Deep mutational scan, measured.
Amino acid sequence: VRLVQFQKNTDEPMGITLKMNELNHCIVARIMHGGMIHRQGTLHVGDEIREINGISVANQTVEQLQKMLREMRGSITFKIVP
C-alpha cells in the first residue's frame, strides 16, 4: 500500500478512467496520454484505489467517485495498492 499525492487547482480533468473489478475494488482502467495524472506519472493502469483523501471508496459507484474527484481542489491523496 502506498500514498500518492498531487495538486488539483483547476477544472482540468485528471485524465483517468476508473472501473470496479469483480471484487468491487476501484481500479485505474485507463490513463489519458498528456492528462494531469499521466504528466505526474504517479498512478498506473491496474492500480487499486482504496481511499481518496482518507475516504474509503468501498461501496461507492464509479459515477460517485468521478463526481467527487471532479469537485475536489487542492491537495488530493490516493491510498493505492499497486
Score class of each variant (00 low, 15 high):
Val1Tyr: 14
Val1Gly: 10
Arg2Cys: 07
Arg2His: 09
Arg2Tyr: 13
Arg2Ser: 08
Leu3Pro: 03
Leu3Gly: 03
Leu3Asn: 06
Val4Leu: 11
Val4Gln: 02
Val4Pro: 01
Gln5Thr: 15
Gln5Trp: 07
Gln5Tyr: 11
Phe6Arg: 02
Phe6Trp: 04
Phe6Asp: 01
Phe6Gly: 03
Phe6Lys: 02
Gln7Asn: 14
Gln7Thr: 15
Gln7Asp: 15
Gln7Ile: 15
Gln7Pro: 05
Lys8Pro: 04
Lys8Phe: 04
Lys8Asp: 03
Lys8Arg: 11
Lys8Val: 13
Lys8Cys: 03
Asn9Trp: 08
Asn9Pro: 10
Asn9Tyr: 07
Asn9Thr: 14
Thr10Cys: 15
Thr10Val: 06
Thr10His: 09
Thr10Gly: 12
Thr10Phe: 14
Thr10Gln: 07
Asp11Gln: 14
Asp11His: 15
Asp11Ile: 06
Glu12Leu: 06
Pro13His: 09
Pro13Asn: 12
Pro13Ile: 05
Pro13Thr: 10
Pro13Lys: 15
Met14Trp: 10
Met14Ala: 08
Ile16Thr: 02
Ile16Ala: 06
Ile16Tyr: 02
Ile16Cys: 06
Ile16Glu: 00
Ile16Ser: 00
Ile16Leu: 15
Ile16Gln: 01
Thr17Gln: 13
Thr17Ser: 09
Thr17Val: 13
Leu18Met: 06
Leu18Val: 07
Leu18Phe: 15
Leu18Gly: 00
Leu18Cys: 04
Lys19Asp: 12
Lys19Ala: 14
Lys19Pro: 00
Met20Ser: 05
Met20Asn: 05
Met20Tyr: 12
Met20Arg: 11
Met20Gly: 02
Met20Ala: 06
Met20Pro: 03
Met20Trp: 10
Met20Asp: 02
Met20Ile: 10
Asn21Arg: 04
Asn21Ser: 10
Asn21Ala: 04
Asn21Cys: 05
Glu22Thr: 12
Glu22Asp: 15
Leu23Gln: 15
Leu23His: 14
Leu23Lys: 13
Asn24Glu: 09
Asn24Ala: 06
Asn24His: 13
Asn24Trp: 02
Asn24Cys: 05
His25Leu: 09
His25Trp: 03
His25Ala: 12
His25Glu: 14
Cys26Gly: 01
Cys26Val: 14
Cys26Gln: 01
Cys26Ala: 08
Cys26Arg: 02
Ile27Lys: 05
Ile27Ala: 05
Ile27Met: 09
Val28Trp: 00
Ala29Tyr: 05
Ala29Val: 07
Ala29Ile: 06
Ala29Ser: 09
Ala29His: 12
Arg30Thr: 09
Arg30Gln: 12
Arg30Lys: 15
Arg30Tyr: 14
Ile31His: 01
Ile31Leu: 09
Ile31Thr: 04
Met32Thr: 14
Met32Tyr: 08
Met32Ile: 15
His33Met: 11
His33Ile: 13
His33Val: 13
His33Asn: 12
His33Arg: 13
His33Phe: 07
Gly34Arg: 05
Gly34Thr: 06
Gly34Asp: 11
Gly34Asn: 12
Gly35Arg: 04
Gly35Val: 02
Gly35Ala: 07
Gly35Glu: 05
Met36Ile: 15
Met36His: 15
Met36Cys: 08
Met36Gln: 12
Met36Tyr: 15
Ile37Lys: 03
Ile37Gln: 03
Ile37Glu: 03
Ile37Arg: 02
His38Asn: 06
His38Ile: 04
His38Gly: 07
His38Ser: 09
Arg39Asp: 07
Arg39Pro: 02
Gln40Arg: 07
Gln40Trp: 05
Gln40Glu: 14
Gln40Thr: 08
Gln40Phe: 07
Gly41Lys: 07
Gly41Asn: 08
Gly41Arg: 06
Thr42Ser: 13
Leu43Asn: 00
Leu43Gly: 00
Leu43Trp: 02
Leu43His: 00
Leu43Glu: 01
Leu43Ala: 01
Leu43Ile: 15
His44Ile: 05
His44Trp: 04
His44Met: 11
His44Gln: 13
His44Phe: 06
His44Arg: 09
Val45Leu: 09
Val45Phe: 02
Val45Arg: 05
Val45Gln: 06
Val45Trp: 02
Gly46Ile: 00
Gly46Leu: 02
Gly46Lys: 01
Gly46Trp: 00
Asp47Tyr: 01
Asp47Met: 01
Asp47Pro: 00
Asp47Cys: 02
Glu48Cys: 12
Glu48Pro: 00
Glu48Gln: 08
Glu48Ile: 08
Glu48Ser: 08
Ile49Pro: 01
Ile49Val: 13
Arg50Thr: 11
Arg50Gln: 12
Arg50Val: 13
Arg50Pro: 01
Arg50Tyr: 05
Arg50Lys: 14
Arg50Ser: 08
Glu51Gly: 09
Ile52Met: 02
Ile52Asn: 05
Asn53Phe: 05
Asn53Met: 03
Asn53Glu: 03
Asn53Trp: 00
Gly54Lys: 07
Ile55Gln: 15
Ile55Val: 11
Ser56His: 07
Ser56Phe: 04
Ser56Val: 09
Ser56Lys: 14
Ser56Gly: 12
Val57Trp: 01
Ala58Met: 10
Ala58His: 08
Asn59Arg: 07
Asn59His: 13
Gln60Leu: 09
Gln60Asn: 13
Gln60Tyr: 11
Thr61Ile: 02
Thr61Gln: 10
Thr61Gly: 12
Thr61Tyr: 03
Thr61Val: 03
Val62Ile: 11
Val62Ser: 13
Val62Thr: 13
Glu63Gly: 11
Glu63Leu: 07
Glu63Ile: 07
Gln64Ile: 13
Gln64Trp: 07
Gln64Tyr: 13
Gln64Phe: 13
Gln64Asn: 11
Gln64Thr: 11
Gln64Pro: 03
Leu65Thr: 13
Leu65Lys: 00
Leu65His: 03
Gln66Tyr: 10
Gln66Glu: 14
Gln66Val: 06
Gln66His: 10
Lys67Tyr: 09
Lys67Ala: 11
Lys67Ser: 10
Met68Tyr: 10
Met68His: 12
Met68Ala: 12
Leu69Gly: 03
Leu69Thr: 07
Leu69Cys: 07
Leu69Arg: 00
Arg70Pro: 04
Arg70Leu: 13
Arg70Gly: 13
Arg70Met: 12
Arg70Asp: 15
Glu71Met: 09
Glu71His: 13
Glu71Arg: 12
Glu71Val: 11
Glu71Ser: 12
Glu71Thr: 10
Met72Leu: 14
Met72His: 12
Met72Arg: 06
Met72Ala: 14
Met72Glu: 08
Arg73Phe: 06
Arg73Gln: 13
Gly74Met: 01
Gly74Trp: 01
Ser75Met: 08
Ser75Ala: 15
Ser75Cys: 12
Ser75Lys: 13
Thr77Asn: 07
Thr77Lys: 10
Thr77Met: 03
Thr77Arg: 07
Phe78Asn: 00
Phe78Val: 05
Phe78Glu: 01
Lys79Leu: 07
Lys79Pro: 00
Lys79Thr: 09
Lys79Glu: 06
Ile80Pro: 00
Ile80Ala: 02
Ile80Gln: 00
Ile80Gly: 03
Ile80Asp: 00
Val81Gly: 07
Val81Cys: 10
Val81Met: 09
Val81Phe: 12
Val81Asp: 04
Val81Ala: 09
Pro82Trp: 03
Pro82Asn: 09
Pro82Val: 07
